[in-house]
Amino acid sequence: MLPSAWTPFSALANLTGQPAASLPAGFTRDGRPVGLQIIGRHQDDIGVLRASAAFERVRPWQHVWPLSRDRRQSA
């Protein structure tokens, strides 16, 4: 994968100068990660950080790991 392959996902925030955060949001049934992107109003970095913290409070993720390939096949 090219290093620039991710740019379509951040172009809107980059071009408009809006603050943004990307958060882990879980895993698909087959163990692939899913993310949530929060984009705020121009210069509202604090709002984006508050929204990110609120999401992490209701959906903590630090203790969650995807199933290994071996465990997915036996599940």
Rank of each mutant, 00 (worst) to 15 (best):
R59L: 13
A20F: 01
Q62W: 00
V64H: 07
G17S: 04
W65M: 14
L12M: 14
L36K: 05
R72Y: 15
V58N: 03
T28K: 04
G26R: 01
Q43K: 04
W65T: 15
R72T: 15
F27T: 01
R59T: 13
D45N: 15
G47A: 07
W6T: 10
M1A: 12
A54S: 12
P3S: 12
Q43F: 12
Q73G: 14
P60C: 02
I46H: 10
P19K: 02
E56R: 07
L15H: 05
Q18S: 12
Q73N: 14
W61G: 06
Q37I: 11
D45P: 05
A13C: 08
A53P: 08
H42N: 04
Q62R: 08
Q43W: 13
A5P: 00
L15D: 04
R72V: 15
A21S: 12
L36W: 04
Q18P: 01
E56K: 07
V48W: 07
H63R: 04
A20P: 01
I38C: 06
Q37S: 11
S4V: 10
R59N: 13
Q62N: 09
P60E: 02
L15Q: 06
R41W: 15
R71G: 00
A11G: 12
A75Y: 03
I39K: 02
G47F: 04
Q43P: 00
G26A: 04
A75Q: 08
G47S: 09
T28P: 01
W6I: 10
G17N: 05
A11C: 13
S22Q: 08
Q62S: 09
L12T: 13
A11R: 15
P8A: 05
P8E: 03
W6P: 00
G26C: 03
L67E: 03
T7S: 11
R69D: 11
D70H: 11
D30W: 02
V58S: 02
H63F: 03
F55S: 11
Q73W: 10
T7Y: 11
L12I: 13
I39A: 02
A51G: 03
S10G: 12
R50V: 13
W61L: 09
R57S: 05
Q18V: 12
I38F: 06
R29Y: 02
A51P: 00
A21R: 05
L23P: 01
L23V: 06
D70R: 12
S74I: 10
T28A: 09
S74Q: 11
R29Q: 04
S22N: 08
N14W: 04
G40I: 01
G35D: 01
P19V: 08
I46T: 15
R50M: 14
F9H: 10
R41G: 15
P19R: 01
P3G: 14
Q62T: 05
V48F: 11
G35C: 04
V34D: 09
A21T: 10
W65D: 14
A53K: 13
R41H: 15
P19W: 03
D45H: 15
T28Q: 07
G35Q: 02
A20C: 05
S52C: 08
Q37M: 13
V64L: 10
D30T: 08
Q73S: 13
V48M: 09
A20R: 01
F9R: 05
F55A: 14
R32E: 14
